[in-house]
Amino acid sequence: MVAALAHENITGPTRGLHRPLILARWLWVMAVMVVVMVVVGGITRLTESGLSITEWKPIMGALPPLNEAQWLAEFEAYKQIPEYQLVTGPAGMTLADYKFIFFWEWFHRFWGRLLGLVFALPLAWFWIKGMIPAGYKPRLLALLALGGMQGAFGWFMVRSGLSGEMTDVSHFWLSIHLLTAFFTLAGLVWTALDLRRLGILGAARPARLTGVAVFAASILFIQLLLGAWVAGLNAGLASDSWPLMQGRFIPEYDGSRGFFYALTHDPYLLHFVHRWWAWVTVAALVILARKVRPLDRRASIAIHSAFGIQIILGIATVWSGVDLWIATAHQLFGALLVAATAWDAHVLGRRRQDRPA
Score class of each variant (00 low, 15 high):
residue 2 V to S: 15
residue 3 A to P: 12
residue 9 N to A: 15
residue 11 T to S: 15
residue 11 T to E: 15
residue 15 R to E: 13
residue 16 G to L: 14
residue 16 G to C: 14
residue 18 H to M: 15
residue 20 P to N: 09
residue 22 I to Y: 11
residue 22 I to F: 09
residue 23 L to R: 02
residue 25 R to M: 11
residue 26 W to E: 00
residue 29 V to P: 10
residue 34 V to E: 02
residue 36 V to D: 09
residue 41 G to A: 07
residue 41 G to T: 01
residue 43 I to K: 04
residue 46 L to V: 06
residue 49 S to T: 06
residue 49 S to P: 01
residue 49 S to C: 03
residue 52 S to R: 02
residue 55 E to H: 14
residue 56 W to M: 00
residue 61 G to Q: 11
residue 64 P to R: 09
residue 66 L to Q: 15
residue 70 Q to N: 14
residue 75 F to H: 08
residue 77 A to V: 12
residue 80 Q to C: 13
residue 81 I to D: 03
residue 87 V to I: 09
residue 88 T to G: 01
residue 99 K to R: 13
residue 99 K to F: 07
residue 102 F to K: 02
residue 103 F to C: 08
residue 107 F to Q: 09
residue 108 H to Q: 07
residue 109 R to L: 04
residue 110 F to N: 10
residue 112 G to M: 04
residue 116 G to A: 11
residue 116 G to K: 02
residue 117 L to A: 12
residue 120 A to N: 10
residue 128 I to T: 11
residue 129 K to P: 01
residue 135 G to T: 06
residue 138 P to M: 08
residue 141 L to A: 13
residue 143 L to R: 00
residue 144 L to V: 07
residue 144 L to D: 05
residue 147 G to N: 04
residue 148 G to P: 03
residue 150 Q to R: 00
residue 153 F to C: 10
residue 155 W to P: 06
residue 156 F to N: 02
residue 156 F to I: 08
residue 160 S to D: 05
residue 160 S to M: 08
residue 164 G to P: 02
residue 166 M to V: 12
residue 166 M to C: 15
residue 166 M to L: 14
residue 168 D to Q: 12
residue 176 I to V: 14
residue 183 F to V: 12
residue 184 T to H: 07
residue 187 G to P: 09
residue 187 G to T: 01
residue 193 L to Q: 07
residue 202 G to Y: 01
residue 203 A to S: 13
residue 211 G to S: 06
residue 219 I to M: 12
residue 220 L to V: 10
residue 220 L to W: 09
residue 222 I to P: 06
residue 226 L to N: 02
residue 227 G to M: 01
residue 231 A to C: 01
residue 233 L to K: 01
residue 236 G to E: 00
residue 237 L to Y: 04
residue 237 L to S: 12
residue 237 L to R: 06
residue 241 S to T: 15
residue 241 S to E: 13
residue 243 P to G: 08
residue 245 M to R: 03
residue 246 Q to P: 07
residue 248 R to M: 15
residue 250 I to L: 10
residue 254 D to S: 05
residue 262 A to D: 03
residue 265 H to E: 12
residue 272 F to Q: 06
residue 279 W to C: 11
residue 279 W to M: 10
residue 280 V to W: 08
residue 280 V to G: 14
residue 285 L to R: 03
residue 288 L to N: 05
residue 290 R to G: 15
residue 291 K to P: 09
residue 291 K to R: 13
residue 292 V to H: 01
residue 297 R to G: 11
residue 299 A to C: 05
residue 300 S to H: 04
residue 301 I to P: 00
residue 305 S to A: 12
residue 308 G to M: 08
residue 308 G to C: 00
residue 312 I to K: 05
residue 312 I to P: 03
residue 313 L to E: 03
residue 321 G to Q: 08
residue 321 G to L: 08
residue 330 H to V: 04
residue 335 A to K: 00
residue 344 D to F: 09
residue 345 A to C: 10
residue 346 H to D: 07
residue 350 R to T: 09
residue 351 R to D: 14
residue 351 R to F: 13
